[in-house]
Write a protein that binds this DNA or RNA. Structure first.
Lengths: 329, 329
DNA sequence: TTGAAAGCGCTAACAG
DNA sequence: CTGTTAGCGCTTTCAA
């Protein structure tokens, strides 16, 4: 409670001030082991008199616990680290880690060399890893020594718990909504091909279209607004009778809408457009974007928590995708 | 390069494998001090043969360097930690800190008790602090022991370097643009009152309006889209001749536009709307948002770097605000 | 219930 | 140029 000394107080300082040994002070502070009420009292008093804060690095060193949780993002280039989605994950993870005095680090995992995880595994200061944009290769390349302290936001495996949105169900819900609105010529702009978890919605789309006897119109995407613009042009050119576009990214959906309107196509009058994620601005635009909302923050928090707590986790934790019907579709 | 052992390799392991002492291995690995080419060679070989990664926690312990950089965000409630802007700062900081094996932590600083910084100062594992939403009270409450390893994104002081957008110039540029477009009844939706750096644009606004003999119409805001909606209503009610709204947040600007259009007001036909920050989506909406772009990522990176490098920094580093004229104004 | 002692993985004098 | 020695701040047996 006192103004911080120039040098942070150590446990030794506290022990001396309380007139006990370092071990006793440690037991009291860490709340582990025995200590007489009297000792407890004096140590506590000394600690807050000195403004004592345990040094997590030292603690981690002796317990072998690590001090950093690494958010490892796979992608074609380091630019993936600039993605707002990634920032959201890092932000949520950082919040979850703060009470444990664990810091968060951000790493890029080049798609071409999945064994870059080895370095993280060999770093004793890394307490765990949260995988983002997980691929099969990546899953295979997770070193054994990382087992039990890795979680994946995306696909998982027998040994690596997965935390993800129920993509299939989400896609189905949006597509049924489009269908219920009378749309029959529905194109889809997908996520990147290398990203396994973005294949689910595509499968669902194909299944539903086939089932309804509707044409399958798939355009590869990359989650960007720019791709939305070009994809809209392509779609219009290839399929002039188009009456809906389903994009697996709100950013892309906005790109689609912009291009469509610039081309004189009314949204949703002529073509309905739906997105994916419900970013904060989705409800503020004109037309407001119909999309599916996903608890990205909660997913990231759950993954980070699983890694931190190191307790047995269900192999797959699915979070619900909720249709948010607005004006665009 | 070998598959990671169950226990991360230690310097001791490397030294033994290379047939040298721990100190020699340390010198080679850390690149500090002398070592014969021969020793250098063998240590390097042993290190990568064992997949050795130095343990930054241990290193930090002996050098007193710390392992975490804390992004400390002031605000009325912990909800500020959910802000996309904050996530962007954390993401950028994490990227800058990664090479140094420093983790990033996210802390909320209650507006009402600025001395919560004391705890960070007393934590030996904290290598530095980046302040966000800095207030005068906060600046005054920064413990001496933190000097030289704090940076502020926002206002600074004699001892705390500031990294910020040139808000005044940015506001002036946008307002002049509005004026050049023929707008004469310009209302402004500000940032929160408790946030000092958001007062600069207000001052600039008042100065320019006064200078041009135009009415001053200020509405307090809070950076949210929701507030934009209500503010638009208020503005229209109080000032029916309104022909422009300048909001100090793109989110707010979008809220303003939405409310205006719902009320049958054309944008930019009847009322021009301009924002602040140039969020990624600003260019994708209809109408595309006129705003000022700010290098948030670079600002955060600069602040984090200043803290990490601990080298003398200019008291104030201003980043340019660049007008992005689009359709809305 | 407490203290003495050892050691986590690393760096940094200090002698050789 | 290299090895020995002494810690950094903390937890944790092990005796007392």
């Amino acid at each position: 409670m006192t103004a911080a000394a120039h040098r942070p107080a150590t446990l030794e300082d506290v022990a001396r001030a309380a007139g006990v040994s370092r071990s006793t002070a440690s037991r009291v502070i860490a709340g582990t082991g025995f200590a007489s009420p009297a000792a407890r009292e004096r140590v506590a008093a000394a600690a807050d008199q000195l403004g004592y804060v345990p040094n997590p690095a030292a603690r981690a060193l002796v317990r072998g616990g690590g001090v950093r949780l690494v958010v490892a993002v796979a992608g074609p280039s380091a630019a993936v680290l600039d993605d707002p989605y990634v920032h959201r994950v890092v932000g949520s993870a950082a919040r979850v880690c703060a009470p444990a005095a664990i810091g968060v680090a951000l790493h890029w995992l080049p798609l071409s060399q999945p064994n870059s995880l080895d370095q993280l595994a060999g770093d004793g200061s890394v307490c765990g890893v949260v995988l983002v944009n997980t691929t099969e290769d990546l899953l295979d390349a997770v070193p054994r020594s990382l087992r039990g302290r890795v979680a994946s936001i995306g696909i998982g495996s027998a040994t690596i718990p997965s935390f993800d949105v129920d993509n299939g169900a989400g896609a189905e819900e949006v597509l049924r909504h489009l269908y219920a609105g009378g749309r029959r010529r529905i194109a889809m702009v997908t996520g990147p091909r290398w990203l396994p978890c973005s294949q689910r919605p595509v499968q669902e789309y194909r299944r539903l279209m086939r089932q309804a006897g509707l044409p399958e119109r798939v355009l590869p995407g990359d989650f960007t607004a720019a791709r939305g613009r070009t994809a809209a042009g392509e779609a219009l050119r290839r399929w002039p009778d188009l009456d809906a576009v389903y994009a697996i990214s709100d950013e892309t959906a906005f790109g689609v809408i912009a291009a469509l309107r610039e081309g004189g196509v009314r949204v949703p009058g002529d073509v309905a457009v739906a997105g994916f994620d419900d970013i904060p601005l989705a409800g503020m635009t004109t037309p407001a974007l119909t999309t599916a909302s996903h608890p990205v923050g909660r997913i990231a928090a759950a993954a980070a928590t699983a890694v931190l707590d190191r307790r047995p986790t269900a192999p797959v934790t699915l979070f619900p995708s909720a249709l948010v019907a607005r004006a665009s579709a």
